[in-house]
Design a protein around this nucleic acid. Structure first.
Lengths: 203, 203
DNA sequence: TAGGATTTCCTATAACTGTTAGGCAACTGG
DNA sequence: CCAGTTGCCTAACAGTTATAGGAAATCCTA
């Protein structure tokens, strides 16, 4: 079956680690090759190019994130789902800022031409859907009914993602109170709004 | 006073337009030089390098954004401030996605060494503070008192920024209801939470 | 144990971007 | 009209992405 050595999975895992250490912008063919002790053209045996590499990292990391959140939600044993879900995402982002960046920074190509698109975009889309389904499970845990499900998912995702992004960018580092305190308050207010949405109380 | 031609302001304004047309990633020395009908080294007369260019675009765009939000808030004539504020930001982001990206994508250098930092970082910090002050004005319009001001600003900024980011990334494009509808609902829920925060009702 | 097939990895090379150095040319003010 | 100032240029180099083609290592089979 040929000579053993690197394979696509090992390359992408190394790229994810590289993102955490030097930032997602440092995930390039040449620095990754240097880190793997290999010449740059070698990597083209495992990836189709630079955008495939970054997209594959995004897909890989989105899967890791879904593993983390679903694990935390399952460990909660039937109780509240919001706090385990949100806390798992924030823990993930703080422990692995480069990985979380990969989650965010990926753009959908303007012209998603399947012939030119790298093979990893399908993986990224599937992994994104996995995370979306977990968010849906959280709001269903509140008993939110069909017409409001999408709304609740968007509200929750926006708030969690927005808070973590700003926190990671350092926006909350130069003022009191500490970010931990306001984070828990944010979750409490979000919980209240979600419970209110579940009851269908509108106006 | 020497030969007329480009100046720093014109270069940065052109770079902002370039960001909207081709994305913030396309804001590079060489692409910008081509667009301006000039050779790449020429731009080094106006900027110190690529990071200075992008940071200057961020500062420039943050000022434009602050102009837009403060204008919308002033036009509201003493009424509600949240809706004009949030709507102005979303309009800005949808009209100029590359510019909004510049707002977001800028990282603070890990070691902010003042000797190596480009001259534009101070501008970017000042422009960022201008936007933060406008957010503060919104929550003060609700009568939020001192210990909760920071919390309210963080909550509001996270939600608005998160929603716009996900919407711009296309996350809300493939499900019903349309994003406009849930956006207004988000603002209504945020309004309710801010009014509740102002009354000091906790737990 | 000898092929053959498969796969990894290499060197060589080309194009493009960021950057520095040094010089020519054009405009302004005295 | 001359000097200072400024804008822009060519030349050159390092680093990155990418392609082409070939050499070596390993596995499977005869």
């Amino acid at each position: 079956m040929g000579r053993p050595g690197l394979n696509r999975a090992a390359v992408i895992a190394a790229a994810a680690d590289l993102a955490d250490e030097l930032g997602f912008d440092a995930v390039t063919i040449s620095v990754l090759a240097r880190r793997l002790g290999v010449r740059s053209p070698t990597l083209y045996s495992h990836i189709t190019g630079a955008v495939d590499l970054r997209t594959a990292v995004t897909a890989y990391v989105l899967d890791e994130l879904a593993d983390a959140t679903s694990g935390a939600m399952a460990a909660g044993e039937g109780g509240d789902l919001l706090v385990p879900f949100a806390e798992a995402i924030r823990d993930f982002a703080r422990r692995s800022p480069g990985r979380y960046d990969a989650t965010t920074r990926q753009r959908v190509p303007r012209a998603p031409d399947p012939s030119t698109a790298p093979p990893s975009v399908d993986d990224a889309i599937a992994a994104g859907r996995r995370n979306a389904d977990l968010a849906l499970a959280v709001v269903r845990g509140y008993g939110v009914a069909e017409p409001d499900e999408t709304y609740a998912v968007r509200l929750m995702s926006s708030l969690i993602h927005g808070y973590i992004t700003l926190e990671l960018a350092g926006s909350f580092a130069h003022s009191e109170p500490p970010s931990d305190a306001t984070w828990h308050e944010v979750l409490a207010d979000l919980d209240r709004t979600l419970r209110r949405t579940a009851t269908g109380r509108r106006h």
